[in-house]
Design a protein around this nucleic acid. Structure first.
Lengths: 215, 215
DNA sequence: AGTCACTTGCTTGTTGACAGCAAGTTTTGG
DNA sequence: CCAAAACTTGCTGTCAACAAGCAAGTGACT
């Protein structure tokens, strides 16, 4: 009973959990900076640890390996993106949900351009056979695709989407388009007009999915 | 005319140019193997030189750097792909050209799966800020996109494509879709049905671009 | 033909940097 | 005070990049 931890801990002292959470965040933030500057391969674990105000070895110690760190970073940003998406889409379904998702992508990339770019770079890296978050990337795409397919099915149920389209096929095309569009924007942001591409896509979605005369 | 080099050269002796061309090819072939096995980053220049039957230092000497080698490899495979594409498409225009190009992709990936996969991996790598063939990748996409836009315009000129669509916007969407589709197929070939995705896309192209009542 | 000056293809030695590990040191908390 | 957790430092093997060199090829001139 005698000891009271809080009485002897000053402002800077944190609990163990707080310490590690804070240093994890600092290192992931540093990793975002460095990946944007130098890419994933020319960023070193020592650079990440030191920019986070820690030692050169901490990143390795905490995340196990370079791939492990990027996997954690991918999951962290994906969480934010998913939060942004679900907040925007809410419980919309059908064409509305698909169009709102396009807006959500644009919003996320505008509000968090650094995180958005890094997420793209990481997903692109999943193409490599040696990638450690290949499976993570596959899972994310799979989940997004089944979400979209569900939007389409509910749109058909409520009568806003034609019944003669295959929900899974539409979802596949939609996800492929988004994947390609974000990749092209990432590689050359100047020659790619995100906003007008989105407007075109929305028009396209309505034209090909909406039931005749509806909307 | 006095000297006749060919008379004194035996079977195994090659001219300098032939020698370097042969070793370049051998190293690019070795690089394809190794990139498929280990990815770009875990493949070493020494491995490439040695699998090509040469020394560990030749790849660096000839291509200057790891990035330089991958840039050369990207250009080499792109040449084959472009040849395959132009052979298939010929002087088709409009929706025909766009659908044939989808078939050409499927053909190329079926006939040269190794080259196709490596090309995808390299293009994905262009996402990194440190990539040395970033510009190469941008140029290739730009050229493809303007080719597609030209197909659309000629299709409009010959009356097979509606006049109220914007050729550049259509080309952008088409290229974005192809980019995403090939990426998704690369990352998880098992969960992605290339053939049926192509069929869906063709239907989609005809539905959204064809003049009412034509075809 | 012969040999000499020069170029080109290729190999080997070396250096600096990095990932990953292991053995330590400091901080926390009971 | 001591165990556990957070963190640092020392070290090793590997790699990209470079540089110095060797050997085969090439052309010019006799």
């Amino acid at each position: 009973m005698a000891t009271d931890p809080q009485s002897v801990r000053n402002d800077t002292a944190l609990t163990q959990a707080e310490r590690s959470a804070a240093s994890d965040r600092a290192m992931l933030d540093a990793a975002i900076d460095l990946v944007l500057e130098h890419g994933t391969d020319k960023t070193t674990l020592a650079m990440i640890g030191e920019r986070a105000g820690k030692s050169r070895g901490l990143a390795t110690y905490r995340f196990g390996s370079k791939g492990g760190l990027y996997d954690a970073l991918c999951k962290s940003i994906s969480r934010d993106w998913l939060a942004c998406l679900t907040e925007r889409v809410g419980d919309k379904v059908g064409i509305d949900a698909m169009c709102t998702a396009l807006d959500a992508i644009h919003d996320f990339v505008t509000r968090s351009p650094r995180e958005g770019r890094v997420l793209q770079i990481l997903h692109a890296g999943a193409a490599s056979p040696s990638s450690e978050f290949r499976q993570t990337s596959i899972d994310i795409h799979g989940r997004q695709q089944s979400d979209v397919a569900e939007w389409v099915r509910r749109g058909q149920a409520e009568g806003s989407i034609r019944n003669d389209v295959d929900a899974d096929a539409v979802a596949g095309q939609y996800i492929a388009y988004i994947t390609g569009m974000t990749h092209l924007w990432l590689v050359s942001p100047d020659t790619f007009n995100f906003k007008s591409a989105n407007a075109d896509m929305k028009r396209q979605l309505r034209a090909s999915l909406a039931v005749q005369g509806a909307q």
